[in-house]
């Protein structure tokens, strides 16, 4: 018993000592990030849909990082994507939610509790939206990356006359700057102008991919297509 106690003490002392050492090493980064976070500015966000059915948020407040236009990044932020106005919100330390100006960031990443990437968004310029003449810069979620990228625009719509919000996600396939909007249907995918129809058909067939309204299968199909091209 005495031996165990001595050993446990040694173990605790060494672990404590070295955890302190590591803490000291992280200090410059932590101070730098804290300074960056404290210096952030933006419009206070007020929720316009408090009593609506459904949610206009892609996620609950989640830790993430933002990538600024100048190449710097700010980590350790509580972030939330708001799909109705296509805005990125961050929760300040005083619990005030703020809108981060879309023009000052290139994208953001959200992490789950185990520090794995839950979702990555990028700002894509010049996306033409239905019923709008002008193109807009939008946050698009990266679903598959490669020569052909597959993005989701997590748009939320409001039903007129009823207090209800509905998911209105749109999907886009990009080949560098060219892009096409598609629905989660096999015909839409095969009709994308820059995708080789026969090659995609064979991928779908050989991998037994069932595409209809299945986001995950679309990701799989495009990922395989990217690998084979």
């Amino acid at each position: 018993m005495k031996n165990i106690f001595i050993c446990l003490s040694i173990l605790c002392v060494t672990q404590y000592g070295f955890s302190q050492a590591e803490h000291v090493e992280d200090e410059p980064y932590a101070t730098y990030m804290q300074s960056k976070r404290n210096g952030m500015m933006g419009l206070e966000y007020t929720d316009p849909f408090l009593n609506y059915e459904g949610s206009h948020y892609f996620n609950d407040w989640t830790y993430g990082e933002i990538f600024l236009k100048n190449g710097e990044k700010i980590t350790g932020l509580l972030l939330r994507y708001e799909g109705y106005t296509d805005q990125l919100l961050w929760l300040r330390e005083d619990y005030i939610p703020c809108i981060l100006c879309k023009a000052c960031i290139n994208g953001f990443k959200l992490y789950d509790d185990s520090d794995n990437i839950k979702a990555s968004f990028v700002v894509r310029k010049g996306i033409r939206l239905p019923f709008e003449n002008d193109s807009a810069d939008c946050f698009l979620q990266i679903l598959a990356e490669g020569q052909y990228s597959f993005f989701a625009f997590r748009r939320v719509g409001r039903l007129p006359d009823v207090f209800k919000l509905v998911d209105n996600t749109r999907y886009y396939i990009f080949d560098n700057d060219k892009y096409e909007k598609i629905s989660l249907r096999i015909r839409d995918l095969l009709n994308v102008s820059f995708i080789d129809k026969s090659k995609m058909k064979s991928i779908i067939k050989t991998n037994k991919i069932r595409l209809r309204n299945n986001e995950q299968e679309f990701i799989r199909a495009i990922s395989i297509y990217n690998m084979s091209s």
């Binding site: 952030m40 500015m41 933006g42 600024l68 236009k69 100048n70 190449g71 710097e72 981060l100 100006c101 879309k102 023009a103 000052c104």
Partner: peptide
């Protein structure tokens, strides 16, 4: 060079 960040850009 590196560019600056403007939180007032919108």
């Amino acid at each position: 060079g590196i560019s600056g960040v403007s939180y007032f850009a919108c």
